[in-house]
Simulated scan of single mutants.
Amino acid sequence: MQKHPFAFYFLFIALIGALSFSCKFNPNMQTPGESYLQGEWQQDSIPKQKQLVTYSLYHLKFSCDSFFVSISSFSKVNTGADSCMNSGHWTEYCRGTYDQKNDTLHLKGQFCNADMSLKDDKGCFRSGDYEEFFKVSKKADSLVQFASTTNIIPVNARLIKKTTCTPKPL
């Protein structure tokens, strides 16, 4: 049985077409992100924090589609090495990108050091991937509530510095 060269060319063209429609290039510029989030947000306290054994306070910074968060944790119970827990107070940092669909904010990135350099996995506390989902409620122009899907205590953050997005090349 003899094969027709037309069938081979047709399959080749169909394969190339399917690959070109299924692939897309990553953008070479940052996307603008959510305009209402642009800037720095601070959580000052949580209700009844003096009675809690352990709690965390958040400082979030949004710039275009990127975020940087510092999580200051406080604990009355020492469950780790004191060189890490620093007498019951320590801070972790994360950086990455975010997107929002409806009322759900998705943060995805990496744990890092305070200078935004990648954190060594042999150090204190968490390292590697960071991923968190928050239900966002805008309470006022300068007050937003981030309700985590993994924590029962919401983050009530106030705007301390408003910025605008100026997309940068990637």
Rank of each mutant, 00 (worst) to 15 (best):
W90D: 00
L118G: 06
K108V: 15
N156K: 12
V155M: 07
D129A: 15
K108D: 04
K101R: 14
H89P: 02
D129L: 14
F146Y: 01
K122H: 03
E132Y: 11
W90L: 08
Q145V: 09
N86W: 05
D121T: 15
E92I: 04
T150H: 10
F134M: 12
F111A: 10
G123D: 05
N102E: 08
T97G: 14
T149K: 14
N102C: 09
D103F: 14
S137V: 14
K139C: 06
T97Y: 13
N156V: 13
I153Y: 07
I152E: 05
K101F: 05
A114V: 11
A140S: 12
K139Q: 08
M85R: 08
V144S: 03
D99H: 14
H106S: 11
S117G: 00
G128L: 03
S87Y: 01
D141G: 08
Y130K: 10
D115W: 11
K139S: 03
N86F: 06
Q145H: 00
S148P: 02
F111R: 10
N86S: 09
S127V: 12
F134T: 10
D121H: 14
G96E: 03
K138V: 09
T91Y: 02
S148E: 02
A157T: 03
N102D: 06
R126L: 15
R158W: 08
H106M: 14
N151M: 12
L143A: 06
K135W: 06
